[in-house]
Design a protein around this nucleic acid. Structure first.
Length: 282
DNA sequence: GGTGCACCTGTTAC
DNA sequence: AGTAACAGGTGCA
């Protein structure tokens, strides 16, 4: 099935899918291929929206899934107007209009950022593809084989050793432990969507291998906590160079500074600072 | 509570 | 081509 998805406001598909939020969307034949929920999708930039091909059962269901994934329920243009009051963000917005935050599936998102520590984007992608290919359910679409991300039960079976063989290194143990907690019902990620920021963050940080930064990534990219502000090397560099903040400031202090300044826009601001600073180069 | 080191291994930089 | 530093942090002494 194929159709056109009208999107209000700017949407830059490439920047959105390649700005380090998601790691498994791949470009081929001029389309971006990936899985949302149980179905395969191919997306392509269009004027005023996206060209969509999908194996989803109905157009209505596909549109609903895409609206959720792309966070079309956010007032993106309103957020941009507010961000535009800041000099640096205005530059970033001019350069990358339509860079969106995504609403990912929490389990894959958590695993993604557990895998991200002291790694790099090519390797993170490789790790996640290896996990999906080895343990995920295949989804056929238009002659391509895509994979769903395996659930906690399956990754519990795979175990730390199995994950290590896929190249996760020391992160394998962390993922295996989190998988077990989720599979046994001690970790309910979906429930954290309803919990307040601080409470959800504390639950995540109780997991081995999840510190403040990884927790904030899971919170902002999958658990609807747009006040989260993941502070990685790039964002710290941006705050130091552009806002006179100490690059070595304690996480909590830098976070408080950002939240006081940007409030519920922190998620979007972080994404723009990260992407812009990374594109500017070292 | 803060500091310094180890952790797997693919990329990247000489 | 080969080698060393570095990479979207975190746990632990």
């Amino acid at each position: 099935m194929s159709f056109f998805l009208t999107v209000p406001g700017p949407l830059d598909l490439k920047a959105t899918l390649e700005s380090g939020q998601v790691f498994r969307w791949e470009q081929a034949d001029g389309w971006y291929w990936g899985v949302i929920g149980a179905h395969g999708y191919a997306l392509r930039q269009g004027e005023g929206g996206l060209l969509v091909r999908t194996g989803a059962p109905s157009e209505a269901r596909a549109k609903e899934a895409l609206a959720g994934f792309l966070r079309l329920d956010d007032d993106f243009e309103g957020v941009c107007r507010e961000m535009g009051r800041d000099q640096r963000l205005r530059e970033a917005l001019a350069r990358y209009p339509g860079l969106r935050l995504l609403r990912q599936e929490p389990w894959e998102c958590l695993v993604s950022f557990m895998c991200s520590q002291v790694s790099n984007i090519p390797r993170i992608s490789q790790n996640l593809r290896a996990i999906a290919q080895a343990h995920g359910e295949a989804v056929e679409m238009d002659g391509r084989r895509l994979y769903r991300f395996p659930g906690p039960e399956r990754l519990t079976e795979a175990g730390a050793e199995g994950l290590r063989r896929l190249g996760l290194g020391f992160r394998a143990e962390y993922v295996a432990l989190a998988a077990r907690e989720a599979a046994e019902g001690r970790l309910d990620l979906m429930a954290l969507r309803e919990a307040p920021y601080q409470e959800a963050k504390e639950r995540l940080m109780a997991l081995r291998g999840v510190g403040e930064k990884v927790a904030d990534c899971a919170l902002v990219f999958s658990l609807d906590k747009l006040e989260a502000f993941p502070l990685d090397r790039w964002v710290r560099r941006a705050l130091a160079e552009w806002y006179g903040q100490g690059e070595k400031a304690r996480y909590g202090e830098a976070l408080a500074w950002a939240q006081a300044r940007w409030g519920g826009r922190c998620g979007y601001v972080q994404q723009y600072l990260f992407h812009y600073r990374r594109m500017v180069g070292t």
